[in-house]
Design a protein around this nucleic acid. Structure first.
Lengths: 254, 254
DNA sequence: TCCTTATGCCAACACAGTTGACCCTACCTG
DNA sequence: CAGGTAGGGTCAACTGTGTTGGCATAAGGA
């Protein structure tokens, strides 16, 4: 039965599949990424992945508690790759910017996988490591804890949110075998100018801009703001001023 | 057969269902929202929706081309509600801020539906109307077209991205029948302090902050930045200065 | 060498989206 | 007011999904 998944480090025996491949968590995740790229973000199924691995679909349940668990592992892999491709230079602003772009481009390197996973928090080790890294950068830079936490929150949510959104658009375009720009051109071009004067007036600019990500612009805006805050904090520390930005309201629900 | 869906305005006859209900696009979308709230973001199925409507599942295909089409209609409904709950006051910054928050809270009012739809562009009328509105606000405020388009892009993507992310977290918490704060507390509290010193040092602050949305903070940051740009543009216009911010790089892929 | 058990495979389950055929009734036309 | 048309509701069936219980087997420790 597949109720209990054996944790990866405790695995000892590796019996090869009927078709000869020797399975592992790593191999499964990597193959899943390939299947996702080839068949789209909804094309990852237990049976298809089994075939791609040369194994019975049910074998997957020896490694993951279910497809949902596998999905989280894929997200964790992308986050890990981002972290691996990044290294600290010692300057907080540049480091944060590089880390954000690393996360963003790691996800966009696998748009179908990203569309599937980026809006989920996995709580797995490499993801936690990223959180720790960001907080470390901010606190070391001199941000007081409250500000560091607020910035960390904005930073990570912003990065993940844009990764999900941009990946979704990119995956859609790839699956439609067209460029993003063509898509946006046709979207805006067919609108009647009398009903949508502003869109009509800027249609060409829109088609040129939409296929690019707004993430760098927004990220820089956030970092500019943070830098200004830091300066204010430093000068306030010498005069004893303790004013802070007003808190944001909680996310509403009804 | 269900190959061709009859467009809504062209519908004439409304035969009641065996159980007596008279279907319509509106009724189906509204019922879908209820089903989503009750059964979670993955709980919307053709059969379940059929039962909730008192109709055969296959009847849905008389109104929508498929579950995917229905999903887009749900997203369109949420966007429409945001637009309806908003009204222009005439001041661009306040208007944009209100519109952003309206979109965000309209989606968060139905977290399960939002998690399902917010990362998709529908291209339907009400969504286009929102685009036109945003561009109108910016251009009327005096932003040159290039800046208006860049801001529009950042604004709408930011809002949708956060709607998707926050809705996902909220839906997860609701389905786990727990508060977000409990979730985050348990997530951070069980980490060893020696491996994650920065998280450990700020655990209580994190648990208090994470259940709130970072969207208002980031949105305000973006609008601050835009306001500063506008002032610079105006003074530049009098001196003939035409310097602009450097362009953002395109979204990478590999 | 033998024993244990991790791990692969098979068959089967419930449930998903979707379609084709059928039929009935609401409405338009005369 | 009668008749014809077709919109739209229903039924049954198809394929494909995630998932599980039972079984077989070979890897590795003793």
């Amino acid at each position: 039965m597949a109720k209990q998944v054996v944790p990866e480090p405790a695995r000892r025996r590796r019996r090869p599949t009927q078709q000869g491949t020797v399975l592992s968590e790593r191999l499964i995740v990597h193959t899943a990424l390939r299947v996702l790229r080839e068949h789209g973000s909804t094309g990852l199924t237990a049976r298809r992945l089994g075939t791609a691995l040369g194994a019975d679909p049910s074998t997957l349940y020896r490694y993951f508690a279910g497809m949902d668990d596998l999905t989280r592992a894929i997200g964790e892999e992308l986050m890990g790759r981002a972290l691996d491709s990044w290294s600290a230079a010692g300057e907080w602003r540049a480091d944060l910017r590089a880390l954000g772009l690393a996360i963003h481009s790691s996800y966009l390197a696998h748009p179908q996988a990203a569309a599937l996973t980026a809006s989920r928090v996995t709580g797995r080790p490499r993801e936690i490591a990223v959180d720790e890294t960001i907080l470390g950068i901010l606190r070391t830079a001199g941000f007081p804890d409250v500000a560091a936490v607020r910035l960390y929150h904005a930073f990570i949510d912003l990065s993940l949110a844009f990764a999900a959104l941009d990946a979704g658009a990119l995956a859609l375009a790839e699956e439609a075998r067209t460029t993003d720009e063509e898509m946006w051109t046709s979207t805006y071009a067919r609108l009647p100018a009398e009903s949508y004067p502003h869109i009509a007036a800027t249609a060409r600019l829109l088609a040129a801009r939409m296929p690019h990500s707004a993430y760098p612009v927004v990220l820089d805006t956030l970092l500019d703001n943070a830098a200004a805050q830091l300066v204010a904090t430093r000068s306030a520390a010498t005069t004893g001023d303790r004013s802070a930005r007003p808190e944001a309201p909680p996310a509403g629900d009804s």
